[in-house]
């Protein structure tokens, strides 16, 4: 096999915060991320008061993000035991260590994302799952129109960060 250690930037070489002009990308630490699946997770089964979809922003520290008709990602929600909850009829997996979370903010942040996804405000979606720069990402607004949050598989975090840094470079130096 070929030793490719120098081909790939070491994880420790990635900065937790990158700023290009008015754009900022910063890694976030969340207290808890929980994947919950069940027939009623969208219908107020007690997982969260708000289920976030696109393009509306999430508000507050605790919320649920809609992924599929029967699946949400709870952010900073209640601590639930992993496995099948027969009473609530829902499957639970703690994914706090499974997803790395980035926030991208700035007045042209959406343009950064548009380097990696066919995404506009004009096409709403109940699911926050996106293919961003070829990677599966949970993507939604948080707090307002110019701040976006991305949850990406831990193993793909460096790939997403590298792609975002490249795209931020394009938007940052864009003249028009």
């Amino acid at each position: 096999m070929r030793d490719d250690r120098n081909k790939w930037r070491a994880p420790s070489a990635f900065s937790n915060k990158v700023t290009v002009g008015a754009l900022t990308m910063a890694q976030q630490t969340l207290a808890r991320q929980t994947l919950v699946s069940g027939v009623r997770v969208h219908a107020g089964a007690g997982v969260a008061s708000q289920v976030v979809s696109w393009p509306d922003p999430a508000h507050g520290d605790s919320y649920a993000v809609g992924l599929r008709r029967d699946q949400v990602l709870m952010v900073n929600g209640l601590s639930l035991p992993d496995g099948w909850d027969a009473q609530a009829r829902q499957a639970v997996s703690d994914m706090t260590d499974g997803f790395v979370v980035y926030d991208l903010s700035g007045p042209r942040a959406l343009q950064v994302l548009q380097r990696g996804a066919d995404i506009t405000d004009g096409v709403p979606s109940a699911s926050a799952l996106r293919r961003l720069f070829g990677l599966d990402v949970v993507l939604y607004r948080i707090g307002g129109p110019d701040r976006f949050r991305m949850h990406v598989e831990r193993a793909r975090a460096q790939a997403l960060q590298e792609a975002l840094e490249s795209a931020m470079g394009f938007v940052g130096r864009k003249a028009d």
Binding site: F133, A159, S166
Partner: peptide, 13 residues
């Protein structure tokens, strides 16, 4: 930009 290490990036441990 979808090239080099951003083309099919490896998963990291």
């Amino acid at each position: 930009q979808h090239a080099k290490t951003q083309w099919a990036p490896v998963k990291r441990l």
